[in-house]
Nucleic acid binder design. Structure first.
Length: 306
DNA sequence: TATCCAAGGTAAGTT
DNA sequence: AACTTACCTTGGATA
């Protein structure tokens, strides 16, 4: 077992729990099994694990990490330092990003309230599949689906006396049948996942093909995958492909934006996206929206409870 | 205990 | 191009 420590002194604010449990990534699991547990509180020091895809480091690699005493402790089958910096966007300078973001009171409040929340940089294929699965689903169930897919079709990897499973490769998932995925409770998303996996496996289109494209063009291209509309495309662009200007517009955030920034409200997805990006800051609108999303979400939940 | 409903949308069919 | 509707499943709310 390899292990190490990543000091956060030069990284800036970072909160592991809010970053991996905020519904942008479905590749991490809490070792204590309490992911998305309603009783959780941010700031804990639980271990989280993931399995890096072979495409990233040559072969599937287990990585375990926890945040404690202002630093990140990791254990892995490989030297996981650089992969962790990459996956958790520890190379982002949050303050610099906020400097480039619109000076809106709500954004500032959200940034303070969720200090240390970062976007993730997930492996593209698992990101694509997880957001296809996200349609009309709760976060905890999306997570369960990804775990089921890994157990059923992904490579097993032994580490520290346990068996972990890598997320299936496109080829592995393309061998799945719609019926098998319905068994795994994917519901009507099952045929979408099979068709999209086939497209990637046979070389027709890979999510990374759009990396050098203009943002709106990239989003349009991703919608060629089955089960991928503009919202899911934006999630993949923002949470995997480094398009930090992408603002995924789900039904909830559209309502919230209509409330808080009525001048950005539009019927058309494309037009509303443009208006929000103009208002929040063209370069990092996705970062700003992610903070605002969680801030308003929690505010709403608190209100309902009260 | 039974029933109802919404959950971070998308595809396909109609105007 | 804009507007409707069906779609799997499940946990939590309501009766």
């Amino acid at each position: 077992m390899e292990q190490g420590v990543i000091s956060l002194d030069s990284v800036g604010a970072f909160d592991l729990q809010s970053t991996v449990e905020s519904g942008q990534s479905y590749t991490w699991s809490r070792e204590d099994g309490r992911m998305y547990d309603q009783t959780h509180t941010y700031g804990g020091s639980a271990w989280y694990s993931t399995v890096l895809p072979a495409t990233m480091v040559g072969q599937p690699a287990v990585v375990r990490v926890r945040q404690r005493d202002g630093r990140l402790e990791w254990e892995s089958t490989i030297d996981a330092h650089e992969p962790l910096v990459d996956l958790l966007r520890l190379d982002d300078n949050l303050d610099a990003i906020m400097d480039e973001t619109a000076d809106e009171p709500l954004i500032r409040e959200a940034y303070e309230a969720y200090r240390g929340l970062r976007l993730v940089r997930d492996p593209p294929f698992s990101s694509l599949v997880s957001f296809i699965c996200s349609a009309q689903m709760r976060v905890s169930r999306i997570h369960e689906m990804q775990r089921s897919l890994a157990r059923a079709f992904g490579d097993p990897v032994e580490f520290d006396g346990q068996t972990y499973h890598a997320f299936p490769t496109p080829k592995q998932l393309a061998t799945a049948t719609e019926a098998e995925l319905r068994e795994l409770k994917l519901g009507y998303r099952a045929p979408y996942v099979v068709a999209t996996a086939e497209m990637v496996a046979n070389g027709e289109l890979h999510p990374t093909d759009v990396i050098d494209m203009d943002y709106e063009q990239a989003r349009e291209r991703l919608t060629e995958f089955v089960g991928v509309g503009q919202k899911v495309a934006d999630c993949v662009l923002l949470f995997s492909l480094d398009f930090l200007q992408a603002v995924p517009l789900d039904t909830w955030i559209r309502g919230a934006i209509a409330d808080q920034f009525p001048d950005c409200d539009r019927d058309s997805y494309t037009e509303m996206s443009r208006a929000i990006r103009e208002r929040f800051g063209a370069e990092y609108a996705g970062y700003a929206q992610t903070y605002v999303f969680h801030y308003l979400r929690e505010a709403e939940e608190t209100d309902v409870a009260a």
